[in-house]
Structures are given as structure tokens and as C-alpha cells.
Amino acid sequence: MNTQVTIAGVTFKNPVMTASGTFGSGMEYSQFVDLNRLGAVVTKGVANVPWPGNPTPRVAETYGGMLNAIGLQNPGVEVFKERDLPFLAKFDTKVIVNVCGKTVEDYLDCVERLGDTNADMLEINVSCPNVKEGAIAFGQKADCLYDITSKIKNVAKQPIIMKLSPNVTDITEMAKAAEAGGADAVSLINTLTGMKIDVHRRTFALANKTGGLSGPAIKPVAVRMVYQVANAVKIPVIGMGGIATAEDALEFLMAGASAVSVGAMNFVNPYSTVEIVEGIEAYMRKYGVEDIQELIGCVK
């Protein structure tokens, strides 16, 4: 039984990854799950310099989901290189570093400084809804996305994944722009912009007023977008959005994703990632699936 998938020349032992921002750099969850069992750890977004993030409250629960407006707090790429990447090097899993920035120059600086590290791939966050400047603007206009993708591709030593925003009219246009810019893969979906009002306090639940919605509530939207994008581009798609179980992960694979990421559900069940790996294997045994490739995009 083969669960391996290959994306842009990088081979993952299985298609299960962590979604950026929900898993730190793996340290906190390594006390719950064996990171060696995962296809990849996708790290929390890192920028060329430290970012303090947004004021609190930064998180709020919603029906079947949650809103967050962390604001990409991160210690900066230099601390990340000294502390987080050496930690991840100890595990037999692939490392995908999520990169954020406010300007094109920020992204290029960070990507260049990650060139000589053990990062196997870079995921470019052009879709965070919680940062005022830059960031999402690159992910909501096709020409901007094409431009930043091609500039990053010029300097990147690793294959790049462009992480797409669902907060657009037609996500396939964005995926095509990333592909045209030279992206090696796309990942989707980032969170959906949302809002919650605390009626007892008569104020916003989040200090940032708006936040990104994630969790099982968004899964059908994510599956639909993955299906559309997988049928619109030739580059591989990494699917995410509300994956809680192996069956959820299989929906994304069947919709056309080559790999999947588990996000908010890490908070709900810290063992989810490995349970999903095991659940996919159990499904393959049950239905006599020899190679996971048979499942990827099998629903037309």
C-alpha cells in the first residue's frame, strides 16, 4: 500500500500536513503526536523581521468553527532559523515554511534568508485576512499575485506554494495567476473573513473586529474551491479547510488535492493529524486501494 505523494519533486510519506498557524513549529504538539508520522509540518508564518500581531481578544468560537485575528505574530526569520528549523530537522518529516510579508521586498528578503536552510518547500502567505497592509492584497488581485509569484520564484531556492484566499470572486483566476507566475503548487483555502458580535458586551468579539473563519463550518466551501482549482490548473493543489476526520481528508483528495492540511481541529483534538493518517490507511485497506494516487481527483 503506497501513501506517498510527490509535489514539485518533494516526496511526502503521506498526504497529511498541518495547516500554517495552527501547529506552531511542531514543538507544542510533539507532546501529543509523533511528528515522524506526518507528511509534513507546515510552520506558522514567519516574516523577515519580528511582528507583534494584533491586540487581544484574538480568537472567538463560532458555530462549528472559530474566528482568529492573531495578526501573524512571529519572532522573525532569524530566531526561526536558529530555534525552529533545527528542532524540525530532528524528525523524519518534510518541512514547509510559511512566509508572510507586508511588501514584496519583505517576502523576497525572507525567502532569500530561508534559501540555505532545511526547509523543503516554502508556502507563501498572500491571503491572511488579519493584517492591514500588504499580505492579502497580493492574494486578491490576479495581476498582483502573478507579479509577486514570479518575483519570489526568481529568488527562491525551494519550490514554492502560493496559499490562496477564498475571499475572492473566482478562486480559479487566482490559481491560474499563481501558476502563470511560476508557482510549483497552490494551497487553499485560507480562512474566510468573518465577524462576531458579543451582544452582552455590545462590542466585537475580536479586538480586530474581523477575523478569519476556520473549522468544520467552512469545509464544504473549501472542498468546492479545491475541486474548481484542481480542474483549472496543472500544478498540484494542497487542500485544507475544516478537516476533522480521515473522511474529510479523503473528500479533499477525491476533489483533486494531492495533499491535505489539518488546521483548527488540532485545537479540538491534538491527536487529529495522526488519527487522520491512520484513518486514510484504514480506508485504503478497506477498499483495497493500492496507491493513494487512485483516490486523488477520482471524483470528476
Binding site: G24, T56, R58, V59, M66, P75, A264, F267
Partner: peptide, 28 residues
């Protein structure tokens, strides 16, 4: 503070600090 993960991964429940802390490097 409002929390999501409870184990230090999500950075939801931060508090401003007077000194730079070992983890965040941004006084959070």
C-alpha cells in the same frame, strides 16, 4: 484570556510584557 489551543501553538491568548520573552521575541 480567550484561548484556542491551550498549549502555546496558536498565539491567541497573549499578554504584553515589559521584557522580551524567550518565546515570542515581541513582548507578547
Amino acid at each position: 484570556e480567550r484561548m484556542a489551543c491551550g498549549v502555546g501553538a496558536c498565539l491567541g491568548c497573549v499578554c504584553k510584557t515589559t521584557h522580551k520573552d524567550e518565546h515570542s521575541h515581541v513582548n507578547n
